[in-house]
């Protein structure tokens, strides 16, 4: 007998253009209140291969809290605090100009599979009409040059220009800017998860 091949996976399909009334009815773009003392703004524009804004995308983020703890049972580092009300999850549809925005806190460091610290980062999934499956990327922080230079995931991207697309830029208003380019020149680095 051949070994059981297991059950086949359910394939992905596009989120389509008409998800807003279901998926983004509630505002999940504020992971912390606007008046949170450590609140940071992360904003950006999603653009396609023609450099046109993508007005029907949905950006999701997943991150640890400021102490580096995930609000999930598999993060068993119980000596690190959890923050009441902070789920670590955010979701924001892009507007007519392709823009999205999150208000959150900068995540603390979390370990890589070898126990070494990863640079602070936020996992990102992008869904849109025309994307048959989500695109996954990460946001890294511009004030973490040393940690970024040592980060095993970031440094696994061989091409320096491609790697640089994952580091957010500071904006004049003190916000962090992270554009997502789906295709073409300056394409964002995407991951196979």
């Amino acid at each position: 007998m051949t070994p059981d091949p297991g059950l086949g996976l359910t394939p992905s399909q596009t989120v389509g253009p008409f998800f807003h009334f279901a998926l983004t009815k509630e505002d999940w773009s504020r992971l912390v209140p606007l008046d949170h003392p450590q609140a940071i703004w992360i904003e950006g524009t999603v653009r396609d291969g023609a450099d046109d804004p993508v007005p029907d995308a949905m950006v999701e983020v997943w991150q640890a809290n400021a102490a580096g703890r995930y609000a999930h049972p598999e993060d068993r580092r119980e000596d690190l605090p959890l923050d009441k009300g902070f789920t670590g999850f955010g979701r924001c549809p892009t507007d007519a100009e392709g823009r999205y925005e999150f208000v959150t806190v900068k995540p603390g460091p979390v370990p890589d599979p070898n126990g070494e610290p990863q640079a602070p980062h936020i996992d990102v999934a992008v869904f849109a009409r025309g994307l048959l499956r989500q695109l996954v990327t990460r946001i890294y922080f511009p004030d973490e040059e040393e940690a970024n230079a040592a980060d095993p995931i970031l440094t696994s991207i061989g091409d320096r220009d491609l790697r640089r697309t994952l580091v957010a830029r500071g904006s004049p208003e003190g916000h962090l800017h992270f554009d997502i380019k789906l295709q073409g020149e300056n394409q964002t680095a995407f991951f196979e998860v």
Partner: peptide, 20 residues
């Protein structure tokens, strides 16, 4: 115009990816 052209980088599953 939306499919990426550059090959995807393999992301090892760290604590960030096994939580959700």
């Amino acid at each position: 115009l939306r499919a990426p052209e550059r090959p995807l980088t393999i992301l090892p599953h760290t604590l960030s990816e096994i939580t959700g």
